[in-house]
Design a protein around this nucleic acid. Structure first.
Lengths: 136, 136
DNA sequence: GTAACCAGTATCACAGAGTATACCAGCAAC
DNA sequence: GTTGCTGGTATACTCTGTGATACTGGTTAC
C-alpha cells in the first residue's frame, strides 16, 4: 500500500532516516518516531536548558551575561545546568586566570544541532502571542 | 548596522514576526526571543505532552491505543495529561455511550500547530541515534 | 463463569528539578 | 573604604511531575 518510492538516489544518511520514519516497506514507523521524540525530550527537557543554549548561541559568554538574558533563572540553576551541559559536551568552559579571572562559555557544534528545534519553538511562541493579541 | 531590508512586501503576520525577532531597527530582539521560547516551554514542557500529541496526531484515538503507543507511560499520567490537554483545547474528547462506552480523543487545529516542533525533534532524535551508531 | 478489554480512578510515595536567600573572595572604580 | 561586579557556592526547602500498584464497573467473547 501507499505511494511507490525509491531510495536509490538518496545519500546513505537520508536513506537511513527515511527508513526509520517510514520503515523498509514505506509504512510509518510509529515506534521509532516515539523513541526518537523521547530521546530528544530526555536530552533537552527541563525548564532551563534550551533558554541557556539559546542565550549562549546568541553570543552571551559570561555567567552574569547569561543570567541576565534569561528572566527568572537563579544562580543555583544556571550553575548546575552549565556544569551538566559542559559534562555532556554541549558547551565548553574556558578559564583565563587573569587577574581578574575570566570564564567564557561557548556552544559546541553538537549544541548547535538544536538550532532548528529552538527556531521552531521561538516561531511558535511568537505566533502564539500574535494570535492571542488578535483575539482580544 | 547589519544588512538593509524592507518589510513593505511582507504579509502583516510575517512582518509582525520579523519585527519581534529583529525589532523595528533590524537588531535581534533577544528579550522577545527568550520570552517566546519560555512561553513554548511552558505550554509543551514536561515528559509526556509531546508524545501524547504525536500519538493522537498519528491517529490513535482510544485511551489504551494511546497508552500502548507510548513506552513507559502510566495510566495515571496519561489520564492526567489528557484531561489537562482537553481543558487547554489541545484535544477533544467525544463520548459515545454505547453500549459499550466509546471514548475518542482527537487533535484540534491548535494542537496541530506543534507539528513543526515535533517534526524537528523527531528528526533530531533519529539523526542523533544514527550518529551514535556511526561512532561505535 | 472465566478471561480479557475498555477507560479510567485511587492511593500512596518520592525524586529531583527548581526556588529562595545569603554569602564568598577577588578585583575595579571612585 | 564603599560600592559594584564577577563567578559562582551553600544551605534549606518546596512542590510537582512522575511513578507504582491495585482496583473499578461495564462489556464482550468463548
Amino acid at each position: 500500500m501507499g505511494t511507490e518510492y525509491t531510495t536509490d538516489n538518496m545519500t546513505p544518511e537520508i536513506k537511513a532516516m527515511h527508513e526509520v520514519i517510514y520503515g523498509i516497506d514505506g509504512q510509518r514507523n510509529q515506534a521509532r518516531e516515539i523513541q526518537a521524540l523521547q530521546d530528544t525530550i530526555y536530552v533537552i527537557g527541563g525548564k532551563w536548558k534550551l533558554p541557556i543554549i539559546n542565550s549562549i548561541c546568541n553570543g552571551n559568554k559570561r555567567f552574569r551575561e547569561i543570567e541576565r538574558s534569561i528572566p527568572g533563572i537563579t544562580t543555583r540553576m544556571l550553575s548546575r545546568e552549565l556544569r551538566d551541559m559542559e559534562l555532556n559536551k554541549l558547551i565548553t568552559r574556558t578559564v583565563s586566570p587573569g587577574p581578574p579571572v575570566l570564564v567564557e562559555y561557548e556552544s559546541t557544534s553538537y549544541c548547535k544541532t538544536f538550532g532548528h528545534i529552538i527556531f521552531e519553538m521561538i516561531k511558535w511562541g511568537i505566533d502564539h502571542r500574535e494570535k492571542l493579541k488578535r483575539e482580544q
